[in-house]
Amino acid sequence: MGIGLCVLVAPEIVVGAVIVTGVVVVGFAIKEALDAYELKRGRPEVRPAPETRPVPETKPAPPEVLAKRRPKPEPKGPDFPPLGPTETSERERRPKCEPIPVPHLGGNDPHNMCADRIPNNSFPGWDVFVNGKNFDALQLATRTLWDVKTDDFDKHSPHSQKFFIKMKLGEIQRERRLAEECGYNFVVGVRSEAHKIALERADRSLDVIVMDWC
């Protein structure tokens, strides 16, 4: 009743109140709009998911194509050991040229006596082992190895002498080759001139000496 009375008494006041009331309503609407904008701004923007398309299935390539694409391994040779000489084999084949005195083979004292009496024999009473072979004597001063033959050559028939030379020549030549591989000279000692001539006829490169001290 009092409020109505005031409106009736002062209409300008009522108009002012309406104006104020309108301002309050507009301000409240602006605040709600700002709050809604801030809320929308703080949340991440949700976009619709892109349309997914099915991935086309790839068919495996046929075996023939795979075989062509796959790199072929290089052919390897047979698993054989190397054919070239190895260090061990070279060492084994290398001549052992250092002279080593060894006891006489024994069983033939006249033979050993002739060998021990060779002039300038460096190892009387011994054989000398060089390059895998026992030699009867060694003269170090002249680097000469000896093979002594004490057979009674003159007592045999001419036919037996030829056979004897033929049987012994191969071994004599082998001994000379072994001596020369180590840088030694090689001499054959015999007891007769006939034996010397027969050996020189069979191989003119042989150095044959008649042992006149036997």
Rank of each mutant, 00 (worst) to 15 (best):
I19S: 03
I172E: 00
L145T: 06
V65D: 11
T21N: 13
R177C: 04
C214Y: 10
W146P: 06
V130H: 07
G22N: 13
D152P: 06
P110I: 01
N121C: 01
G132L: 05
A49R: 05
L8D: 06
F135W: 00
G125D: 01
V23G: 06
D79M: 06
P78D: 13
F135A: 00
A49P: 07
V15H: 02
K162C: 09
C182W: 03
D151Y: 13
A67W: 09
N108L: 10
V190K: 01
R174I: 08
L105Y: 13
A17F: 09
G42F: 14
G16E: 15
V130N: 00
K40P: 04
D147R: 03
L145V: 05
I165G: 06
R117H: 12
D203R: 10
T150W: 05
G77S: 12
E38Y: 11
D116V: 02
E74R: 12
D147C: 11
Q139V: 12
P85L: 07
I100S: 13
I165C: 04
W213F: 02
K168G: 03
K155E: 11
A10P: 05
P54A: 08
R191K: 15
R91C: 06
R93E: 13
K162D: 15
L169S: 01
A115L: 03
F163G: 15
P101D: 05
K72D: 03
G2S: 14
T144A: 00
E193M: 11
G170R: 06
K166N: 15
A29L: 12
I3T: 13
T144C: 00
D35Y: 14
N121W: 02
K168Y: 08
P110E: 00
C6M: 11
E180N: 06
